[in-house]
Computed example of a mutant assay.
Amino acid sequence: MCGIFGYANYNVEKTRGQIIENLVEGLSKLEYRGYDSTGIGIDGEHEFGHSAVKAIQLYKQVGKVASLKDEIKSRNPDTAEVLPNHVGIAHTRWATHGGVSQANCHPQPSGDANEFIVVHNGIITNYRELKTLLKTKGYTFSSDTDTEIIAKLFKFLWFDGQVCLLP
């Protein structure tokens, strides 16, 4: 069992600190659904290579929501920046695939640039076959979770021309 909480606003200005607070508060109300690890993904700056780009910022930690709060505080995000449009997702995990580790916390990213992130409650029964396929296409994996397969598969389908999603 896991807990998932999402948050989105369009043309409603909020600071990054308010967004983080909303996600963490929502997650704390779902903590009973999974208490081995927690994580959030929010709009924000992300170091990629030698430059900062707008991307999804991930905060993940083993343990309860209090541990996630400490992780966020230790990374000192710019909580004052005002974002007119923003989305975020939060997850509290009870592990089914992969042990309890920071790498296995959700959200799971599609790659270093966090083009897609995924939180998930359930079991992907054919994840081994999908992982094998994606490895043959050059994808590498940083977790032992079945959820990481979804993020990598989205990236493969979107960027590698397997499915044309744009007109």
Rank of each mutant, 00 (worst) to 15 (best):
K64P: 03
K64A: 13
K64L: 14
K64S: 11
V65M: 08
A66K: 14
A66T: 14
A66V: 13
S67N: 15
L68N: 02
L68D: 02
L68M: 02
L68H: 01
K69C: 13
D70M: 15
E71H: 10
I72Q: 05
I72P: 06
I72R: 04
I72K: 05
K73W: 02
K73I: 08
R75W: 00
N76C: 04
N76Y: 01
N76R: 05
N76G: 01
P77G: 03
P77D: 01
P77R: 06
D78H: 05
D78A: 09
T79D: 10
T79L: 09
A80W: 00
A80V: 06
E81S: 13
V82N: 10
V82K: 15
V82E: 09
V82M: 13
L83N: 01
L83I: 12
L83D: 03
P84S: 12
P84A: 12
N85E: 07
N85S: 13
H86K: 03
H86A: 15
H86T: 11
V87K: 02
V87L: 03
V87E: 00
V87F: 11
V87N: 01
G88P: 04
I89F: 11
I89R: 04
I89W: 04
I89N: 03
A90D: 01
A90E: 04
A90G: 14
H91R: 06
T92K: 03
T92Q: 02
R93P: 09
R93D: 02
R93I: 11
R93E: 04
W94R: 09
W94E: 03
A95D: 05
T96A: 08
T96D: 05
T96Q: 05
H97T: 15
G98H: 05
G99M: 02
V100P: 07
S101P: 08
S101D: 13
S101R: 12
Q102L: 12
Q102W: 05
Q102T: 15
N104W: 12
N104C: 13
N104G: 11
N104S: 12
C105W: 10
H106N: 11
H106F: 11
Q108N: 12
Q108H: 10
Q108L: 12
Q108Y: 06
P109Q: 03
P109L: 09
P109N: 08
P109W: 02
P109S: 13
P109T: 11
S110I: 09
S110Q: 03
S110P: 04
A113I: 02
A113K: 07
A113F: 01
N114T: 06
N114W: 06
N114I: 06
F116D: 01
F116I: 03
I117T: 04
I117H: 00
I117E: 00
I117S: 00
V118P: 01
V118E: 01
V118N: 00
V118I: 14
V119W: 00
V119T: 14
